[in-house]
Design a protein around this nucleic acid. Sequence first.
DNA 1: ATCGTACTTGTACGTTCGTACAAGAGTGGA
DNA 2: TCCACTCTTGTACGAACGTACAAGTACGAT
Lengths: 184, 184
Amino acid sequence: MTAPRRPQRARDPEARRAALAAASMEVIAENGVGRTTHRAVAARAGLPLGATTYYYPTLDDLIAAGLRHALDGLRSDLLAWDERLRDATDIAQTLTDLVREYLADRRQVRIEYELCVAAARDTALRPLAEAWMEGLPEIVAATFGAEASRNICALLDGFILEALVTGRELDAPRLTSAIRRLAA
Amino acid sequence: MTAPRRPQRARDPEARRAALAAASMEVIAENGVGRTTHRAVAARAGLPLGATTYYYPTLDDLIAAGLRHALDGLRSDLLAWDERLRDATDIAQTLTDLVREYLADRRQVRIEYELCVAAARDTALRPLAEAWMEGLPEIVAATFGAEASRNICALLDGFILEALVTGRELDAPRLTSAIRRLAA
DNA sequence: ATCGTACTTGTACGTTCGTACAAGAGTGGA
DNA sequence: TCCACTCTTGTACGAACGTACAAGTACGAT
């Protein structure tokens, strides 16, 4: 009766780090950066509280890991975008389609705008947010040129923000024709 | 010695409501919606903790009051924008100037994008956020027409977001020429 | 003058938070 | 085999949180 039985799970430190980062990302998407806690992340990952501070010493580290994880997801998305755009005949139309598909998973979208707002307040997050903002323009620059690309991406951000706030669908035809105007 | 002396300040309930709303707005701008607390707002307003729950029963009420207060400020700004735009000869240029001036006070900007992200997560804030998003298009619609106005405003949102994230100045010439393209 | 109501204020309660840490359990090398 | 190290887990602590509330104060109506 004296020995407290404590069954341990299989050891896999890197999987735990990743699981915590993924869980952190999900909690941020659902509750926002400001309401993300060690306990919520641990529960989401199915791990004990102590695991969070073992792998990410402070809460800021844990949140940064969640944001970084989200950006890694975006980066692989962007590779797919790049391929689709290279093969496209009507680039404006294709870009619109991509944005519409991107908007299908609002959780992913939410977390990236969450990052923007957080970076506006906390300069430590700024490099991360800038990396996000410049990912798409770099890809589109190949076809539209540097300046037009940045304009088009700003336009996309505005359209995405509107869809995010209103919860409505993307106004695809309007976006396509606006892209064409900026590309000319 | 038995009587606990408790000096009371002059009574002015409406001023208190307003002071709390203003303080709430400031705390939101600095810490974000998720890190806004009764105590922080009370301290900022220079009022005791109890005053917050007296005027705004729950924390959500207090935060909503802060957001509403920020939007009231925007609304009066928009009236000024309207006037400036009516008198303008070069509307694209004037709009760019207005955005640059708007960006001078990042606190105001931050809180409005904070509202957007919060509304994306909490549907209760959605009407407030939609009111914000539609304020400017309504004004510009007079000169550019409904569709072009919404496109231009989306573009502005994108430019503002970029400036917010990077902390850099607005790229004014690029914005002006992009507006012209969308207005054509 | 008295009384009811609206307002002010300090304090208290139970909860949740970030973080620290001790005690066990697995694992690879000597 | 045993040791040193890394990883796992439960628990603990002080601080801060949202909210409730009792006690006191001002003030308009009567």
